[in-house]
């Protein structure tokens, strides 16, 4: 009885370890191919354009709307709280930390994960079940450079660009709110925000976006390639993939916070 339990734990650990090993090998191969000279840039570029179109351009209108709404509402709440507490001195710092560094990347990455990560996972899983990936390989086409690399790069790029956009737009729309409600002038607001932004903040925003973008694209691809060759396994693959994507987001967020505290 006890032995069975321990075996269960052991089995679970081995399974996880194998998974982690496979994932690491996959990521290592990804970078090897990415930086090798043989990779055909032209093909990558074409797929990238399509991927950016699906990930960013199609989402753009909705995304902009969300950033405006969150920018006004959120900054409004922060403004009035801070004012009530008599901490107006830290207004700039609080807005920059909360909106630009925390909410920007998080909301962007969640939106893109919801839309694109699930789509990528399904796409790769379907290709795998249909044997398309195998046929690509049999024709001598490297599936890594043709299928995976363009997707990872474009999603990462999109997260980076869009979380920056989110921060800029949210801060801009925050101004509208602070102007109408609190009568803060444009000059005062821009000075307030600009003085609170440091190069370090921009760096943290960049690193966070790139890390998150990378994981929310490579994880679903990896799950897609491991799908068992049965159509009913596709949803299982997507489900597991999305759970891992979510964990990865949390882990990156926590790691960066820990890094900041050290």
């Amino acid at each position: 009885m006890l032995r069975a339990k321990i075996e269960q734990v052991g089995g679970w650990a081995i399974e996880k370890w194998d998974f982690f090993k496979d994932f690491s090998i996959f990521v290592a191969r990804f970078f090897r191919v990415l930086f090798s000279k043989d990779t055909k840039k032209g093909v990558i570029l074409d797929v990238m354009v399509m991927q950016i179109y699906f990930t960013a351009v199609q989402l753009l209108a909705f995304f902009l709307m969300i950033s405006v709404i969150i920018g006004t509402v959120f900054i409004g709440v922060v403004l009035s709280t801070v004012k009530n507490l008599g901490l107006s001195e830290f207004l700039g710092d609080i807005i920059v930390v909360l909106v630009a560094l925390e909410m920007g990347p998080l909301i962007t990455v969640l939106l893109i994960a919801l839309r694109s990560s699930s789509a990528i996972n399904t796409e790769i899983a379907v290709m795998r079940v249909n044997g398309e990936i195998d046929s690509l390989i049999s024709y001598g086409i490297d599936e890594m450079s043709y299928l995976y690399i363009p997707r990872v790069i474009s999603v990462t790029l999109c997260v980076l660009v869009m979380s920056t956009l989110f921060s800029i737009i949210a801060l801009l729309s925050g101004f509208i709110f602070s102007f109408t409600i609190f009568d803060i002038s444009a000059a005062a607001y821009s000075e307030l925000i600009a003085n609170s932004i440091t190069l370090r903040d921009v760096g943290v925003l960049g690193i966070k976006s790139v890390l998150m973008g990378f994981f929310i694209s490579i994880i679903p691809i990896f799950y897609g390639t491991r799908t068992k060759r049965q159509f009913n396994m596709i949803p299982v693959s997507v489900l597991k993939g999305m759970m891992s994507v979510f964990s990865a987001i949390i882990i990156v967020e926590a790691l960066l916070l820990a890094l900041k505290l050290i």
Partner: peptide, 16 residues
């Protein structure tokens, strides 16, 4: 599509 993606990238980078 290429035009739209290009426009998105150019405008975004310009804004940033």
């Amino acid at each position: 599509i290429k035009f739209k993606v290009g426009l998105f990238l150019v405008l975004s980078f310009a804004m940033i």
